[in-house]
Simulated assay, not measured.
Amino acid sequence: MTAGEDIVMRRKRLRYRAWHRGTKEMDLILGPFADANLERLDGAGLDRLEALMDEEDPPLLKWVMGQETPPAHVDTEFLAEVIADHEARLAR
């Protein structure tokens, strides 16, 4: 978070980033997750989302789809939340 940036602006910035990834597949995974969860995330939660969104789309999509195991530096607990959210949306 940059100096002076409040949490409301940070959430808006992250929502935009989630919907404008560069690949439509990741837009459709992270965008709805952001819409549904940003308001409940505190600063630490936003840090976790931001760290995940700093990953490149191709490997991130493979992790979400279960095609590859994420490397050790990835917050797999938070990734599991994103995956569960995506799977719940698909099940509807």
Rank of each mutant, 00 (worst) to 15 (best):
F33D: 00
F33P: 05
F33I: 00
F33Y: 07
F33T: 01
A34N: 11
A34W: 07
A34D: 04
A34C: 08
A34V: 05
A34H: 09
D35W: 15
D35E: 06
D35T: 04
A36S: 04
A36T: 01
A36F: 10
A36Q: 05
N37E: 03
N37S: 07
N37V: 03
N37A: 07
N37R: 12
L38K: 10
L38C: 02
L38P: 01
L38D: 01
L38Q: 01
E39L: 11
R40Q: 12
R40S: 11
R40F: 09
L41E: 02
L41C: 01
L41V: 02
L41G: 00
D42A: 04
D42N: 04
D42F: 01
D42C: 03
D42L: 05
G43T: 15
G43Y: 15
G43F: 13
G43E: 01
A44F: 15
A44C: 08
A44P: 10
G45R: 01
G45N: 03
G45T: 06
G45L: 09
G45Q: 02
G45V: 08
L46N: 02
L46R: 02
L46E: 04
L46S: 04
L46Y: 07
L46I: 05
L46A: 00
D47K: 13
D47E: 04
D47T: 13
D47V: 13
R48M: 11
R48T: 07
R48P: 09
L49M: 05
L49Y: 11
L49G: 06
L49P: 05
L49E: 04
E50Y: 13
E50T: 04
E50M: 10
E50L: 08
E50D: 11
A51P: 10
A51L: 13
A51R: 12
A51I: 11
A51Q: 12
L52I: 07
L52Y: 15
L52H: 15
L52D: 09
L52C: 09
M53A: 10
M53R: 14
M53L: 12
D54H: 14
D54V: 13
E55F: 14
E55L: 11
E56P: 08
E56N: 12
E56H: 12
E56S: 12
D57H: 12
D57N: 07
D57G: 03
D57M: 07
D57I: 03
D57E: 09
P58L: 00
P58E: 00
P58Q: 00
P59K: 00
P59F: 08
P59M: 02
L60C: 05
L60K: 01
L61D: 08
L61M: 08
L61E: 06
L61H: 07
K62M: 13
W63K: 04
W63Q: 08
V64W: 08
V64H: 07
V64D: 11
V64R: 01
V64Q: 09
M65R: 13
M65Y: 10
